[in-house]
């Protein structure tokens, strides 16, 4: 694993985080850290608060209690402008792609570049073409999001997320709604980006194939106890987590006995 060339800045620490909507607590006492170069998986059953946790990490929802650190910076205790500055180093792939529907794919990928760099139009155009070709969408600059398929929209969303060569990449259910082949290709792309960009990656998913293929660290959110019940390498957790729920989840509900039956 390539971790040496990262400074300690590229990591996320979550301390005593409690998430709540109004006063309804979803998860409490979350404590974990994402190390530089990790592909960190946030997993758990449907509706347990995985995506909400992601929204906390990317600055869309303030914690009810607790703190999130990016490096030494307490993410939610600084001014919004400072949060924006941190988020400028992050790329996010939303569940449905979240491409701006009134703009073409090219304009979608170009917007972050136009906003935050001093590149000339021609350079931006070349960069956009390059990023689109990275995700296998070369030549699709002038298509509108409504004119392409769901899987392509996701890939275009990824092209937008990596437009600024981010340090952090966040994925919300990357394989949801994709056929097995596209899902696998996307997983490979994620690993490739980790290697080539040297990015730290956080993935929200409950797709087991993805979890084992890309994850090297994870946290399991348990909706029943409303807190995290396990943390570590997904394969290790499958082998010998002390929690039955976690082992069951990672084995698709099969216990050892039922597999040998």
């Amino acid at each position: 694993m390539k971790t040496t060339d990262h400074s300690s800045v590229a990591q996320i620490v979550v301390k005593n985080l409690t998430m709540a909507y109004d006063n309804y607590v979803i998860m409490q006492n979350l404590n974990f850290s994402v190390n530089p170069g990790d592909v960190f998986i946030i997993m758990g059953g449907s509706g347990c608060g995985k995506s909400t946790l992601l929204r906390h990490l990317i600055g869309l929802k303030a914690p009810f209690k607790g703190e999130i650190f990016y490096g030494n910076t307490s993410f939610w205790n600084v001014l919004p402008a400072e949060r924006d500055r941190i988020m400028k180093q992050a790329g996010i792939l939303y569940q449905s792609g979240a491409l701006w529907s009134s703009m073409t794919l090219g304009q979608n990928v170009a917007l972050p570049l136009e906003q935050y760099t001093n590149l000339k139009q021609k350079e931006i155009r070349e960069l956009v073409a390059f990023k689109l070709s990275l995700v296998g969408l070369a030549g699709f600059e002038d298509f509108y999001p409504s004119e392409i398929s769901g899987g392509m929209r996701k890939r275009a969303g990824l092209a937008r997320a990596i437009a600024m060569d981010p340090k952090f990449l966040f994925f919300d259910e990357p394989s949801a709604g994709l056929d097995p082949l596209s899902a696998r290709r996307l997983d490979e792309l994620i690993l490739e980006l980790r290697e080539s960009l040297g990015a730290t990656i956080v993935v929200v998913t409950h797709d087991l194939d993805s979890i084992f293929m890309i994850g090297n660290n994870s946290v399991f959110l348990d909706a029943g106890t409303k807190t995290m019940s396990a943390m570590g390498h997904p394969r290790m957790l499958r082998q010998d987590s002390e929690y039955d729920d976690v082992r069951l989840f990672l084995r698709r509900g099969e216990t050892k006995e039922s597999r040998h039956r």
Binding site: M87, Y94, A98, W100, S101, Q115
Partner: peptide, 17 residues
Amino acid sequence: GTMEVNEEIDALKTLGI
């Protein structure tokens, strides 16, 4: 509203726009 449903507004916010 559709942009909100489609997470497009979130995508703007996280981009700092």
